[in-house]
Design a binder for these strands. Structure first.
Lengths: 205, 205
DNA sequence: CAACTTAGTGTCCACCCGTACACCGAATAT
DNA sequence: ATATTCGGTGTACGGGTGGACACTAAGTTG
C-alpha cells in the first residue's frame, strides 16, 4: 500500500535518532549541524529539508519523543505502594532505569531546558508541567496528602519534578561511575523524602 | 608603573564581558565564536588568543566570575532573621535581586551546568557544591535544625541549591513578565518552606 | 638610549556551514 | 500505460570559522 510513506517515516526517524545519538555522544544540540545529522542518518544533507525546516523544528519533534517517554515513566511508576518511603524508592529506581534506557532523550531535555532556543525551552517546560500535573493526579488519587488543596499538590509536584530534573543532569554524567551514581541516587531519595515530610506538615499559612 | 598589565587586564575583562553579553542577548555559550566575542569586545579576532586558548578556557574564567558572584549572594543573605519564614522570604528576595543584577552570569550558569563542555559542567557543579557548603555553615551556625547531622544538613542544602538553580532558568526567562515572575517567586518560596518543614521533621531512619 | 617584550593588527587559508537548484528514479494516481 | 508526485542525489556558492604567520607600535627593562 504505502511503501512511500513508510520509507519517508523511516528516514525521518533515522534523522531523529541521528540527532539524539550525536547529542548522547557529547555534542550540544545547539551546535550540531544539519550536515552532521544527515551524515549520521546516512542521507545527503539536502534531503534533511524533506522532513524538517531546520534543526530547531527537529528539536521540537525530539520534545514530542520526550513527551511519550515521560508518559511511559509515569505509567510504569503507577503501581501503588504501601507507604511513602516505598513509593519513593520504587519511583526513583524506575526513574533511573528510564534515564539509562533513554539517555539521549534526557540529555537533550536537560540541555534544552536551559540552553535551547526559546520555542524548545517552552516546549520542554510544558512537558515537565504536564508531567507534574500527572503526579498531582496520582497523589490526589492515592490521597497521599489529604490536607492539601490541588493547587498545593501542584506546588509539591513541581518541587518533585524540579528535583528529579536537576538530578538528571548529575545522574547522566555519572553514567560510568556506579559508586558515585548510587550516592547521588541515595541523595535524591533523601531529598524526595524531605519533600514528602514537608508536604505532610504543610498548613496553609 | 604597569600600564601594560593594566591594559591587558582591561581588554581581558572586555572579552569576558563581551562573552557574557552575547550569552545574555540570547546566544548559547556553546555556539558563540571567538570572532563574535572579539568583535563585541572591540578587538581583532586573533588578539583573543593573547588571553585565552579557546572559548572553553574563557568559559572556565566565567565560572570564576560566577564564584565571586555566588559568594556575594551568600554574604548579603547573612543577616540573620527571626524565623524560617522570614529568612526564606528575605533570602529569595536577595536571590532575585542577584539574578537581575547579574543576569548574564546566571544565564551562563544554567546553560553551562547541563550544556557546557565537561570541564565547564564540573566547574559549575563544584561552585554550586561550595555554595551548598556555605549554606550548611549558616544553617549550623543559626542552629536551624539542631537534630540534623552536618551530612544531613548538606543533603538539605543541596536540595535548596537544586531548587534555586532550577528556578533560576524560569526566573531568567520571565525577566520581562513581572506578573508571572512574581508567581514563580511565590512558588519558589512555598517550595523552600516545604523543604524547611521537611528538614525539621527529618528523623534519621 | 638601546634592546627586548608583548598586546593588538592584517592577511591568508582550509574547512564547515546552510541552502538554492537541477536532476533522477521509483512509487503512486489517472 | 502514461503522467505526476516526491524522497533522495550531486553540484555549487557565499559566508562564517579557527587558527597560522608576519608585522607594528608602545611599554618595559637594563
Amino acid at each position: 500500500m504505502s511503501t512511500r510513506k513508510e520509507k519517508k517515516a523511516l528516514t525521518r526517524s533515522a534523522l531523529i535518532n541521528a540527532a539524539l545519538q550525536l547529542v548522547e555522544e557529547g555534542g550540544n544540540f545547539a551546535t550540531i549541524s544539519i550536515r552532521e545529522i544527515a551524515k549520521q542518518a546516512g542521507i545527503v544533507p539536502t534531503a534533511f529539508y524533506r522532513h524538517f525546516k531546520d534543526t530547531n523544528e527537529l528539536g521540537l519533534n525530539l520534545v514530542d519523543e520526550l513527551s511519550v517517554c515521560l508518559r511511559q515513566l509515569i505509567r510504569s511508576a503507577r503501581e501503588q505502594s504501601e507507604n511513602h518511603t516505598q513509593l519513593i524508592q520504587e519511583s526513583i529506581k524506575n526513574f533511573d532505569e528510564h534515564l539509562n534506557s533513554h539517555r539521549e532523550l534526557f540529555v537533550f531535555m536537560t540541555q534544552g531546558r536551559s540552553g535551547g532556543t526559546p520555542p524548545i525551552r517552552n516546549a520542554i517546560r510544558n512537558e515537565l508541567n504536564v508531567f507534574a500535573l500527572e503526579i498531582v493526579n496520582d497523589l490526589a488519587q492515592q490521597q497521599s496528602f489529604p490536607t492539601l488543596t490541588s493547587a498545593q499538590l501542584k506546588m509539591v509536584a513541581d518541587l518533585i519534578v524540579s528535583t528529579l530534573a536537576y538530578s538528571a543532569t548529575d545522574l547522566l554524567d555519572l553514567h560510568k561511575n556506579p559508586v558515585l551514581k548510587n550516592e547521588r541516587l541515595t541523595l535524591l531519595e533523601s531529598q524526595c523524602r524531605i519533600i514528602f515530610l514537608g508536604a505532610a506538615e504543610w498548613k496553609s499559612a
